[in-house]
Design a binder for these strands. Structure first.
Length: 260
DNA sequence: ATGCCTCACTAGGTGAGA
């Protein structure tokens, strides 16, 4: 069972790259973020032609998340619970029946939060509090749980090529990092760090200033897994080569393999 | 380095991203 997360940065602008990656990587479940598409404009046809079921939670212009899967989910939840006033499409969750077990997978596009000191940063922190409360409820279900997505948080200095360059950024604020730690400390594992403590394991390289060419990346795309999933974790991989393709997203896919 | 690119929206710049 392969589960991937990929911030696609515009699904219509990136369709060729998405299809090529799906064909090569063949994940069982793919969590997309920043589809930048309304549901009715999502290019589901060519994705379905590759054998994927499509569930979207889009909006006009920006944000938007989706779940692609080999088999249809038995349940879908759109939107992160906890604030009826929040109209950003940043969360979609599905449940799949896998033999005797229920597997719950969320595609998360956590707010960026820049600039620090504005309502955007407080929105980020409030969103993280809602995510923590929701994750508590999900862990109580005892379903197998994978919270995958673009967290827009650099967990540790190790996760940035130039950590000092991010000190003033919302992605590396002590409050952002502490909130991510509290989420993990509910009883989840950062799948990548459960498999390696290697440096230079990045998932994002800015389009600007030759960040890719200099490997000036950061690790902000994470799969947090429940203990039952961590016990069956076979491998974790970052599809770094995708960043070198024509018209790439600024993020690359991250994939976990779970034993059946 | 409060913005070096890129996308969406929509036809010229603006907003958002990280």
């Amino acid at each position: 069972m392969l589960i991937s997360t990929f911030n696609i940065n515009g699904v219509k602008a990136r369709l060729d790259a998405l299809l090529a990656w799906l064909e090569a990587a063949s994940p069982d479940i793919a969590c997309l973020q920043e589809i930048k598409s309304q549901d009715e404009a999502f290019p589901r046809g060519p994705i379905e032609a590759l054998g994927y079921h499509v569930e979207t939670h889009g909006q006009k212009g920006f944000n938007g998340v989706a779940l692609l899967s080999r088999t249809p989910p038995v349940e879908v939840l759109r939107g992160l619970p906890g604030d009826d006033q929040d109209d950003h499409s940043r969360y979609i969750e599905g449940v799949w029946q896998v033999g005797p077990r229920r597997l719950r997978v969320a595609s998360i596009y956590l707010p960026n939060g820049n600039p620090v000191g504005t309502e955007k940063f407080s929105y980020k922190l409030a969103w993280m509090e809602r995510l923590i409360r929701h994750a508590e409820a999900l862990l109580a279900t005892e379903d197998d749980l994978v919270l995958a997505g673009d967290y827009n948080v650099i967990p540790m200095p190790l996760d940035a090529a130039n950590p000092q360059a991010w000190l003033g950024d919302a992605l590396f604020q002590p409050e952002s990092r502490a909130a991510l730690r509290r989420l993990v400390n509910l009883g989840l594992a950062d799948a990548l760090r459960a498999s390696t403590d290697a440096a230079k394991t990045y998932t994002f390289w800015d389009y600007q200033a030759g960040a890719w060419q200099k490997n000036a990346g950061i690790r902000i795309d994470h799969l947090l897994v429940s203990p039952e999933v961590q016990d069956r974790l076979v491998s974790v991989g970052i599809d770094k080569h995708v960043r070198g393709w024509e018209k790439p997203s600024d993020h690359v896919p991250v994939t976990i393999e779970i034993a059946a």
